[in-house]
Design a protein around this nucleic acid. Sequence first.
DNA 1: GCCGTGGGTTGAACGTGTTCAACCGACGGC
DNA 2: GCCGTCGGTTGAACACGTTCAACCCACGGC
Lengths: 267, 267
Amino acid sequence: MTVRGTDGHDAVSGSGTVGSAAAGRCAADDPVTAQGGTGGGGATRALILDAALASFRERGYDRTTMRGIAQSAHVSLGNAYYYFDSKEVLVQEFYATIQDGHRRRAAEALQHSVFADRLRGVLHAGIDEMAPYHAFAGSFLKTAILPSSPASPFSGESTAAREAAIGLFREVVEGSAGGISEALARDLPELLWLAYLGITLFWVGDRSPDQIRTRRLVDTTSRLISRLLPLSRIPGLRSVTADIHALLVEMRQPMPQATQARGSRTR
Amino acid sequence: MTVRGTDGHDAVSGSGTVGSAAAGRCAADDPVTAQGGTGGGGATRALILDAALASFRERGYDRTTMRGIAQSAHVSLGNAYYYFDSKEVLVQEFYATIQDGHRRRAAEALQHSVFADRLRGVLHAGIDEMAPYHAFAGSFLKTAILPSSPASPFSGESTAAREAAIGLFREVVEGSAGGISEALARDLPELLWLAYLGITLFWVGDRSPDQIRTRRLVDTTSRLISRLLPLSRIPGLRSVTADIHALLVEMRQPMPQATQARGSRTR
DNA sequence: GCCGTGGGTTGAACGTGTTCAACCGACGGC
DNA sequence: GCCGTCGGTTGAACACGTTCAACCCACGGC
């Protein structure tokens, strides 16, 4: 697939920077100077990004170096930092591509109409998509889970990544045939995403062959959740469902914080 | 508290290495050569550990450097690495001390007999204990949550830290007055620990003043859980409780892995 | 034509975590 | 007495992420 260079670092594989959510310091979608010269300017950014993604895919996080990325992209080290503030934002770009893949795979499972099947399919799709990177998952997650930066589970900054993930589970809920109350349908996607988060955490540590234990966990979890849903209709359990809702509301409100300079609504 | 050195790195505060779970490559509790000379030998390890803990406390993870630790302990950089394989195992030692503090604080809450009070108290104790380090929590958790090494949530290697944490919640369960079925009492501690894990993750990202949102989350969570428990007695819900149990069993079994060389039972 | 402005680009430099070959010095065997 | 062994110790060295002052150069104003 990729042309091998002298030290395995020369290859630049893709061409299209895959996603589009890429929005660095210099907006690539604003073609003010993108046309200058023989393709330099804005194209450089894509070059670096492609090299980074390829390296992440082939070598994982730890063994991908900024110097290697720069070399693959035929730019200087400093230039890579000109477009991407840190290695971390590069890895977030990588997550975005994985999430794209997840969504693509999930589409198939979303053909089903039974909730349990839909959920199970989407969860398995996620694991399928991540499978190639299981060996590196540990070092990846290290920079992902943390609320210090955008792609964290909680954290007020409305990450596009998180919204997209929750949106996927919203599809799971909304397309289901069974009667899910409207109130529940509002909370459920977030809860499912939380469950998916836990499963992912488990998956990272799962050393069983082909991560079969995580697959079992997915089966068990989706069965459990689908059995749990009807219970919300039982009058005697109203108080607990209300509690769960309250808990979610508690978690949901964006964290108030000092560094709110970044535009939070536009874009 | 600590004597200030020339660059704030000279001070060594404590004296007793705090905990005891410290069990590196050279067992400190085996005083074979610990008595040699003017206190050298085994004592070096404690010196380094104390310096590391002090630095973590004062500066957090990121701004604590191995060189700083070595300098504080009046040893060479290489010597620090002789006793501690990496900065990460040092931070795990730090967790152990925090967990000790948690247990100490929790003792008070465990005077109560009502489950909800016990749980709530223990959870708050945990937050109280961690509070001083909230500013650094992000970088700490980064190395804690991950299964790449011992102190991960899941991961087969029976971490002493995890066992201790679950043990704390076992006390919560066992000392409760209300009738908690024996089967539930076996699973509950692990579930509570899982919940605590989630709360901790939330806490890390909580930028509200004094982390008040996490406190509210703790209250809501303990109330919810305590209301959930009686439901396990309802016959109609037996199948879901069975599912939950199955899920836990699924998660519990130690991960089979290649690198099982480390002594797993002895010690 | 000249200058200055500013986006793009560069490589050296800094401080970091980690590794390693060398060194020290006490102890035990001979 | 000598020598080998082995835990302890050292500082140089490596590769890394990140920063920064300098540089290039196309463009617009004058």
